[in-house]
């Protein structure tokens, strides 16, 4: 029950953070130079028609009122409509969010799947040749940008071997196989680089655990090496790894724009760039808010994981709450 209470507190603080963040996002976007009405009407429009359009769009009303309206829209899933096309923002960015969400989460998932066994192996073999080689390779792979790996993969698997499409996207709901074929290369490009980074953290986390007295105890009471790692190593090592993986996932959401452009994936990042170029501020505002919300949600999930995994963190929470 206490654990549930602590999780409820985390969620409450998430809600508070989101509220504050929404105000900051709104204030910043509205403080930017560039008037939506002037942009729509073009450079040769007269001030009177601009003022008329501002009034029609409600831009002349007090900032705070517009913030409350926008917030209400966000909460009911209607964050306004595009200043250019008039289309509801939900229908514009919904499909784009799906692309970016698939790309980021699948990449990170694959990164973790690659990094945990490799990191563990290189921790166990840290004094042997293969362990040192893995460690060195990760150092190099970390420094390579996603798009470069993406281009190489594209040249090999799409252009030369013609196994996979070079670019484009098909939604999961319309054709799962095509969806997968389009995502394989971009996901692999991101996952390889992120895994390289994560391997270093997994490795050092496991080196710490293998040197811990409780790991020696586990071995001394009769666990063979691998079961000892699984029962007494994974949970302890995961505390450190989850923090880093959470940060990586958050930065993938925001940073996937480059890979999206390489593979011509219609993701949120590309949409943001388009909206900025078109001065479509309502769309920019909504996308920025989504990015902020994603980062905050990931951080909260990491905190909750910590809470579930480490009884010492739980104890601290209980002290501060009582």
């Amino acid at each position: 029950m206490r654990a549930l209470g602590a999780i409820a507190r985390q969620l409450l603080s998430l809600a508070g953070s989101l509220l504050i963040a929404s105000f900051i996002v709104f204030a910043l976007i509205n403080a930017l130079p560039g008037d939506v009405a002037a942009t729509i009407l073009g450079p040769n429009s007269d001030p009177a028609s601009i003022a008329a359009l501002r009034e029609r769009m409600g831009l002349d009303r007090p900032l705070l009122l517009r913030y409350v309206e926008w917030l209400g829209g966000l909460l009911t899933g209607q964050p306004g409509s595009s200043a250019l096309s008039g289309a509801p923002i939900g229908s514009i960015i919904g499909p784009k969010l799906a692309v970016t969400a698939w790309l980021a989460t699948l990449s990170m998932l694959m990164g973790v799947v690659l990094a945990v066994p490799t990191g563990l192996y290189s921790a166990v073999r840290r004094k042997r040749a293969d362990g040192v080689i893995i460690s060195g390779l990760t150092q190099v792979a970390m420094a390579v940008p996603h798009f470069l790996v993406g281009l190489v993969l594209m040249i090999v698997f799409a252009v030369t071997l013609r196994w996979l499409p070079a670019n484009g996207y098909t939604p999961l709901t319309s054709n799962p196989l095509q969806w997968l074929r389009h995502l394989v290369l971009p996901v692999a490009a991101i996952a390889v680089v992120e895994a390289a980074m994560l391997i270093r953290y997994v490795r050092s986390a496991f080196i710490d655990v293998l040197n811990e007295d409780y790991f020696r105890t586990a071995r001394a009471v009769g666990w063979r090496f691998v079961p000892a790692v699984i029962r007494h190593g994974l949970r302890n090592a995961s505390l450190e790894v989850i923090t880093v993986a959470g940060l990586q996932l958050a930065s993938l959401f925001v940073g996937s724009i480059v890979v999206e452009n390489v593979f011509l994936l219609p993701g949120l990042g590309s949409q943001l760039l388009t909206a900025v170029n078109q001065r479509d501020l309502p769309v920019v505002q909504a996308i920025v808010m989504i990015f902020v919300a994603i980062v905050l949600v990931i951080n909260t999930v990491v905190d909750i994981c910590y809470h579930l995994l480490d009884p010492r963190v739980r104890a601290q929470d209980e002290e501060t709450s009582s």
């Binding site: 811990e212 007295d213 409780y214 020696r216 105890t217 586990a218 071995r219 001394a220 009471v221 009769g222 007494h232 949970r235 302890n236 995994l309 480490d310 009884p311 010492r312």
Partner: peptide
């Protein structure tokens, strides 16, 4: 054999148990 026929008690009780 370990933990069954032969077992060992170490020096550091503070850190010899799995904290989780």
């Amino acid at each position: 054999l370990r933990g069954d026929v032969v077992s060992m008690i170490f020096q550091e009780p503070m850190t010899a148990l799995d904290p989780t």
